[in-house]
Simulated scan of single mutants.
Amino acid sequence: MQLRYVFSETGTGLRRNVSMTVALVVTIFVSLTLVGMGLLLNAQAQKAEQYWGSKLQITVFLCNQNSRTPHCTSGEVTEPQKAAIKQVLDTHPEVASYQFQTKDQAFATWKRVYISKDKSEQEIYSTVTPADMQESYWVKLKDPNQYRGVESALSGMDGVTAVRDLREVLKPIYFWMTVLKWGAIAIAAFLLVAAILQVGNTIRLAAFARRKEIGIMRLVGASNLYISLPFLMETLVAALIGVGLAAGTLAVFMYVVIYGRLRPGSHIVEWVDWHDALLSVGGIALLGVLLTLIPTLVMTRKYLRV
Rank of each mutant, 00 (worst) to 15 (best):
K140F: 07
V220R: 06
L240G: 02
T73L: 15
V150A: 03
Q50R: 14
A153T: 08
R261C: 09
K47S: 02
G75D: 12
M20S: 14
F7G: 09
E79N: 02
L34G: 13
G75L: 13
G200E: 04
K82A: 02
L41G: 05
P172F: 07
S266R: 15
C72P: 12
V26S: 10
V179W: 06
V77G: 11
V193H: 05
V269G: 02
L3P: 01
P130M: 04
F190S: 11
Q81R: 15
L170M: 12
T59Q: 14
I227C: 02
L41W: 06
P93V: 07
I196K: 09
T202R: 06
R210M: 10
E121F: 08
M233A: 13
Y255H: 13
V128N: 10
G248N: 04
E213W: 04
M20V: 08
M217I: 05
S223C: 06
H275G: 15
F175Y: 08
V60K: 00
G156L: 04
L219E: 11
H267C: 02
K302Y: 07
Q44K: 13
T202V: 14
Y174N: 06
A209T: 12
R210T: 11
T109C: 01
D158N: 13
Q87M: 03
M217K: 04
N201H: 14
T235N: 11
D118W: 11
Q198F: 09
Y125P: 02
S155F: 01
Y226I: 02
Q65D: 15
I268R: 05
V139C: 02
S19F: 13
L290A: 14
R164T: 02
K181G: 01
T59R: 00
D273S: 05
L229D: 09
D165Y: 03
M157A: 01
M37D: 09
L245W: 02
D158M: 08
S120M: 10
L232H: 05
Y137V: 10
L229F: 11
L278Y: 09
F175A: 07
V269I: 12
D158Q: 12
Q198S: 14
R15C: 05
K55G: 11
Y226V: 08
W176R: 01
Y303V: 04
D118G: 11
T109P: 01
E76K: 15
T127Y: 05
L232N: 06
V237Q: 06
R164V: 03
W138M: 05
L56Y: 09
S223F: 07
L56E: 15
H71Y: 15
S31F: 05
Y147Q: 08
P80F: 02
T161L: 07
V139E: 04
T300L: 02
Q44S: 03
R210C: 09
M20K: 06
V150F: 04
S74F: 07
M233Q: 01
A48N: 03
V22R: 04
I173Q: 11
A162E: 13
P172L: 08
F175W: 06
P230Q: 07
D276R: 01
F29C: 12
K119Q: 14
T235V: 10
R211V: 13
G283V: 08
S97L: 09
L166A: 03
R148L: 05
A285R: 00
M157I: 08
